[in-house]
């Protein structure tokens, strides 16, 4: 478990990091919490010649509230999101999702930005970020841009992020009082990652579903919004029958993964069962 040799930079300002990225191009990798990157380096699946550790850049840290939004710095750790009062009060779904990630050490080191940028198909955050319809703030040589979560994830370990860009913050709208979120996860027994993870954000009007967003991770090579489920349930009464019928659409149009941990048919079944249970929990 010995990585290859590399040059190490620890810039203290975002601009500095961006220009280092420009300078070293393909050879460079950004290091955040290191809990995805370092394991791949130790196995020599990645051998970056240059490491740009963004951990010293203060502007990428912290959680604040502005204009009905939570603004979360990319370097915010899973543990900070799990335990911050502001998160627990305003968007408890985020805290709940964080608590399902890895173990204490992983949550203390791993970051929200790192997880999203890495785009592991079994990572937890993407489900919640999709269901919350978050905006991702990205800085690059040409300045800042914003991408919707639904446009960010593009495939297996693939995102909209350019090689010379840095994810700086995640903006999440604070849901109103009639809106509830839930994250339900089945852990892959060895790694603890999601065999299936379903995040639901549901707004009720009386006993009907005014709107619902369902983000699913672990099932396909990229996390996705289960739009079939959403359109089936929106405007419908929240009965057990309607919820179950909607959940049946959890993998419509999706090619489920198959590996030694779960067959395609089993993953499809899990997505449906966990979607149903997550909606039931959010609707209760």
């Amino acid at each position: 478990m010995i990585p290859g040799s590399f040059e190490y930079f620890a810039p203290t300002a975002l601009d500095e990091a961006l220009s280092l990225l420009q300078e070293h191009g393909d050879d460079a990798k950004v290091l955040a919490g290191g809990h995805s990157l370092i394991p791949t380096m130790k196995l020599r699946l990645a051998e970056p010649a240059v490491i740009i550790d963004i951990g010293q850049i203060g502007s990428l840290r912290g959680i604040s509230e502005s204009d009905d939004k939570l603004v979360i710095g990319a370097l915010t750790t899973h543990h900070e999101l799990e335990s911050a009062d502001l998160v627990q009060q305003r968007v408890p779904l985020l805290a709940q999702t964080a608590s399902e990630i890895g173990d204490v050490q992983v949550r203390n080191k791993g970051t929200l930005g790192g997880s999203l940028a890495h785009a592991d198909p079994a990572a937890d955050w993407p489900a919640a970020i999709l269901a919350l319809d978050a905006d991702l703030q990205i800085a690059g040589p040409d300045g800042q841009r914003t991408v919707k979560a639904t446009n960010f994830f593009q495939g297996l370990y693939e995102t909209d992020l350019g090689e010379d860009e840095i994810l700086t913050a995640i903006h999440v709208s604070i849901p109103d009082a009639d809106t509830k979120g839930t994250y339900l996860k089945m852990h892959q027994v060895a790694s603890g990652f999601a065999l299936t993870g379903v995040a639901v954000v549901l707004t009720k009007a009386g006993d009907t579903c005014q709107s619902v967003a369902v983000g699913i991770t672990g099932v396909s090579d990229a996390p996705y919004r289960a739009s079939g489920v959403e359109s089936e349930l929106t405007g419908a009464a929240l009965t057990a029958g309607n919820i179950a019928a909607a959940a049946e659409k959890a993998v419509d149009g999706i090619t489920a993964l198959e590996d030694i941990h779960a067959s395609q048919a089993y993953r499809q079944n899990l997505a449906k069962v966990y979607t149903r249970r997550a909606i039931e929990a959010a609707a209760s």
Partner: peptide
């Protein structure tokens, strides 16, 4: 009974070669 199993594929590669895959 519940978790562990070394899995080799047909070409003899160990698919469960780390704690990410071997429970």
């Amino acid at each position: 009974a519940l978790y562990e199993g070394a899995v080799y594929d047909e070409s003899g590669q160990l698919l469960t070669g780390s704690f990410m895959d071997y429970a």
